[in-house]
């Protein structure tokens, strides 16, 4: 059973998740199907900045986050930025979109100059997230759990972060049991995606270097 406090917690997190999105004037540009390689590179770079700003605005609303040590807050955001961006991108990519939009987006990514060896694991990850058919509450909580990973570099008070993460994991676990009673492995599968995210994040640094050189 989810307690009243836990329900209130989920409500705050989901509202923040819905409120903080990439600005529409930026996403509209993504859907233009006429663009040069340079325009594409500039837009995807602009989006990366927006993604980080959106991540920070969302994270400030996570109950307890702003009570953490200030430098730990920065360490958590720095450490989780790439994973959180991939997770959010995967969720957006799998959302129902008007006809043709998914194809334009996929085409844009494939023609961005990013090497195929990185594109493949990225799209594989997007597909594996899509297969989960997560509801909004699960997406928001999984993102929160990613951000509140205690073993990021330079985090000093790991126990404080761990306590906060445990609170979120407990709520998510209960939600999975209640929402997916016929699939007792659902929670474990969600957490399995976090391991995939870590792998993808390790590819990311190499992906950037090769892309910049291209």
């Amino acid at each position: 059973e989810i307690t009243k406090d836990q329900q209130a917690l989920v409500k705050i997190i989901v509202e923040a998740y819905n409120r903080h999105q990439i600005p529409q004037d930026v996403t509209k540009k993504l859907l233009q199907d006429q663009y040069s390689a340079e325009e594409n590179f500039l837009l995807l770079t602009e989006m990366a900045t927006n993604q980080v700003q959106v991540l920070v605005e969302f994270t400030k609303n996570i109950p307890g986050f702003l009570s953490l040590d200030r430098e730990d807050q920065i360490a958590l955001l720095k450490g989780s930025a790439v994973e959180a961006m991939f997770l959010r991108s995967a969720q957006v990519f799998n959302r129902k979109m008007p006809s043709g939009h998914t194809e334009v987006l996929e085409d844009r990514i494939r023609k961005s100059g990013i090497s195929e060896e990185f594109i493949t694991p990225m799209f594989n990850f997007y597909k594996s997230i899509g297969e989960l058919h997560m509801v909004r509450e699960e997406q928001a909580l999984l993102t929160t759990i990613t951000i509140l990973t205690p073993d990021r570099p330079y985090v000093k008070d790991q126990q404080a972060v761990e306590r906060l993460q445990e609170t979120m994991l407990d709520v998510l676990r209960k939600m999975c049991v209640l929402q997916h009673p016929q699939d007792p492995q659902y929670f474990a599968r969600l957490l399995g995606r976090l391991t995939e995210l870590r792998t993808l994040s390790h590819y990311h640094a190499e992906m950037l270097t090769s892309w910049r050189m291209n």
């Binding site: 700003q53 605005e57 400030k60």
Partner: peptide
């Protein structure tokens, strides 16, 4: 290192935004 510094700058500015308000 340069791109990591850029990321940290963006994060610090965005975090500070609330305090300034």
């Amino acid at each position: 290192p340069a791109s990591n510094l850029g990321l940290e700058d963006i994060i610090r500015k965005a975090l500070m935004g609330n305090l300034e308000e």
